[in-house]
């Protein structure tokens, strides 16, 4: 289970961005989170990915309560969740080649020896050809870069995936290919998914259920 209970989160100044949001994902379940731009769904996704400490509320990951966020979260908890961000350009270190970009989590967690095997498996799965792997982010398109970002999110074989507007910047065919790659991974591993977006048609087709942002925050008040 990935449970967010009564989360209030923001960025310090004035009113919080997210107020009293509650959301629970069953193992293997895929949930679409639908909301307009600027409503706070990305912030909630960051809280769920243990990247942003909420001001109030609790997060429970597979039965264990989360006590720290970012660097203070235990590595096993952090890496249990794979994240794909909205803008591939901003979520890639411009100095790293795609190979290193995808292999970086393996290096960071001391699993260097698995790099060749993982890359050989992941690159075709997300649709990256070998000639792209030696290029740097500025030498590939947004779609190709987002494929690499998805590969990076999957390389540690997380039990949960959080896709924050993963396809918002991409054309329809790339979006479809990425969603297919995510679904293939989930079918193989049984990972749960939180897909954040504003495209109801996509989320309805992609996910087991779609939650509207309003209902997420209203549930507590009612």
């Amino acid at each position: 289970m990935l449970e967010l209970h009564d989360i209030t989160a923001g960025y310090g100044r004035g009113a919080p961005v997210v107020r009293n949001a509650t959301l629970a994902l069953a193992p293997g379940e895929s949930v679409g989170l639908l909301g307009p731009s600027g409503c706070g769904k990305s912030t909630l996704a960051r809280v769920a990915a243990l990247l942003h400490r909420p001001e109030a509320g609790t997060v429970t990951l597979d039965g264990d309560p989360v006590r720290g966020w970012r660097y203070r979260a235990p590595r096993t908890q952090r890496t249990a969740i794979g994240v794909v961000f909205q803008q591939p350009r901003l979520s890639c270190d411009p100095r790293l080649r795609l190979t290193d970009l995808i292999a970086e989590p393996l290096r960071a967690t001391g699993r260097r020896d698995e790099i060749p095997e993982c890359l050989a498996e992941l690159a075709p799965a997300v649709g990256l050809t070998p000639d792209l792997m030696d290029r740097r982010p500025h030498e590939v398109s947004d779609g190709q870069l987002q494929r690499a970002c998805l590969a990076r999110a999957l390389v540690l074989r997380p039990r949960w995936l959080i896709c924050d507007e993963m396809t918002a910047m991409l054309d329809a065919s790339t979006a479809a290919a990425l969603v297919a790659a995510v679904e293939e991974y989930r079918a193989a591993t049984g990972a749960g998914l939180l897909a954040v977006g504003h495209d109801q048609v996509l989320l309805d087709r992609w996910c087991d259920r779609t939650v509207h942002w309003k209902k997420l925050t209203a549930a507590v008040h009612e």
């Binding site: 960051r46 990915a49 243990l50 990247l51 970012r70 660097y71 590595r75 952090r78 890496t79 969740i81 794979g82 994240v83 961000f85 803008q87 901003l90 979520s91 890639c92 270190d93 100095r95 970086e104 989590p105 960071a108 967690t109 970002c149 990076r152 999110a153 390389v155 540690l156």
Partner: peptide, 26 residues
């Protein structure tokens, strides 16, 4: 504050690794 640092944190990188691998080269 860039998302690529978030991505590194999510990928299990320590503070030290983020500093040496991503911040210093920049």
């Amino acid at each position: 504050a860039r998302p690529y640092i978030d991505a590194a944190v999510s990928g299990g990188a320590s503070r030290w690794r983020v500093a040496v691998r991503h911040l210093l080269p920049a």
